[in-house]
Amino acid sequence: MKRLALSAGVLWGAVTVAFIALHLAPGKVVDLIIGNSPGVTPAVRQQIIKDYGLDRPLLVQYVSYLEHVLRGDLGHSYRLQIPVSRAIGDALPATLALTFTAIGLALIFALVVAVLTAHRRPWLRGLFSTAETIGVSIPTFWFGILLLTVFSFTLHLAPAAGGLVLPAIALAVAPAGMLTQVLRDGLENALDEPFIVTARSRGLGDFAVRLRHGLRHALLPAITLTGWLIGLTLGSAVVVEQVFSRPGLGQLALGAVTGKDMPVVMGVVLVVALVYVIASTVVDLLYRVVDPRLRTEAPS
């Protein structure tokens, strides 16, 4: 319940900030809503003022805006000539598929590599650690082109435009690097704990110790990081979508920002906030699954 109230609070904050930003921006709000849309006649302009209630007091406008958002009505894009909810609805699935595939790949990579390399021979650990650092710092744009050159242009294994696997790999590299580092550190710390010695003394094999006892401890910070990484990946998706010619939220947002299409920009802000909220809720729930200590707290 507390969780739900907090989520609602975050969303309400995002809506409010978007509303304030729109009204604080220089120029008339109606012109921001119209943006660079060509050929909006004075009559249409009047209609927009009426539709958005821009002639009413600010507070009334705010309440009415909240009301619209609650009903799922995010306004109309005069640039694209369609409702914002449709523009976002069209773009979101492709971006979510890309983002979650990337996060999934990053998690799998991190789990496998961390379990295999924690406290292993220095050269092996060093090799992966270096690779992870490179992965984190590699420019997504450049890496995307590199992937295309190798796997699409040369080996013909993937399409040059569209596709899911290559863009997901390009997007997964940085999160994979970060997750592996955090997971391995956590795992190594856990492996130094006394309870590990206890577990080993009961005759458990090395892998079983790592998986059943070490990993559970190491997962907590990694889960937190994953929640945050989902947001980060949504942001990087702009670049990846551009390189791989994938339509999606990134391209929509980019077009909206350059075309000054405020209703779409606000809609994207809200949707990204929503994804964040959902991700952090899921993270909280996972905490309870992974860490039994949290379950003793009375369910709220």
Binding site: I145, L148, T149, S152, F153, T154, H156, P159, A160, A161, Q242, V243, F244, S245
Partner: peptide, 15 residues
């Protein structure tokens, strides 16, 4: 396909 290098790569690789 907005990226010049991708358009070109796609042509050269026959896609």
């Amino acid at each position: 396909v907005q990226e010049d290098s991708v358009r070109l790569g796609g042509l050269e690789s026959g896609q």
